[in-house]
Design a protein around this nucleic acid. Structure first.
Lengths: 154, 154
DNA sequence: GTGGGTGCAAAGGATTTGCACCTCC
DNA sequence: GGAGGTGCAAATCCTTTGCACCCAC
């Protein structure tokens, strides 16, 4: 179920931090929101709203998909969730590491993984200088075939 | 109307090349398609489907939006148009330079511009090496405030 | 107690599709 | 002449919204 590189201790702390952040922002802590936070951090990495919803239902069966979207909106506004729009029709969400970072996407199986790129941090300021824009954030996404799909015959 | 850096001569040649490409791919050359090619290359840079449609209507008033989308699909399949999904709800299209390249996006006025970044070409192979993916294409997008919006008081 | 949160259902909006008619080659 | 393209309208699908009810603080 857990396919990201962040260990259990980190993820436990992350859920606490998100909970605290919500509370300190004047938001109420509801069972639905707790279930959503858990699904976001401890479920499969880069989940869709639908995938979060499926996990939440196991714990809180009357929760609605609309509530999932509303909570994601709240977390986005707090900067605690990054929304990944990869053109697949549905968006993915990253609350484990909400700071913009590069991703690789498998165009065959849809898998999404973080990728470390030397010098990626320099790109934003370089783009700022070259364009004259006051740049705040970025999206770095790479598309291709993952290792697993490379070795699997169709 | 023309806000990109590609000059008239280049754009005229580009329209010809697209027309030839369609013909050689077994596609028919219709007045609608010619109008769409012209709008894509000679209209404002990085247009939406709706913006292309508006330009096409001036020349070919009975054309439908569905035809615009279908032709864009055809050109995408040929690799002659790049689809930019910037999360604004509507997609933008680049047929002037269909090869993936970095863009800066103004979050205030929506302007999109090409930006040259030193060493951007190295990123794909670096991401390939770091991830083990067989990467084919990328998206490099930077978001912030354009020069014009910086100097304009709200 | 009360204002924010929830759940339902309906709306929204860009894009896609089905199909009868048309036209480019 | 016939396959491919067009135009209309309806369908799709993710996401958002309105509103009455509920519950965390």
């Amino acid at each position: 179920m857990v396919s990201n590189v962040f260990d259990l201790e980190y993820r436990t702390r992350r859920v606490s931090a998100l909970r605290t952040r919500l509370a300190e922002s004047g938001c109420r802590i509801t069972p639905q929101r707790l279930a959503i936070l858990d699904a976001l951090v401890n479920g499969a990495s880069h989940p869709t709203a639908e995938e979060i919803y499926a996990l939440v239902l196991k714990v809180s069966p009357t929760t609605s998909l609309a509530t999932v979207y509303k909570t994601l909106d709240t977390l986005k506004a707090l900067g605690e969730v990054q929304e990944l729009e990869l053109g697949s029709g549905r968006n993915h969400y990253d609350a484990v590491d909400p700071v913009a970072h590069p991703h690789v996407v498998c165009t065959q199986c849809g898998r999404i993984e973080d990728v470390r790129i030397e010098g990626a941090s320099r790109l934003l300021e370089e783009a700022s200088r070259a364009s004259g824009y006051q740049l705040l954030t970025e999206r770095l996404e790479f598309f291709g075939i993952c290792h697993s799909c490379q070795t699997t015959k169709n």
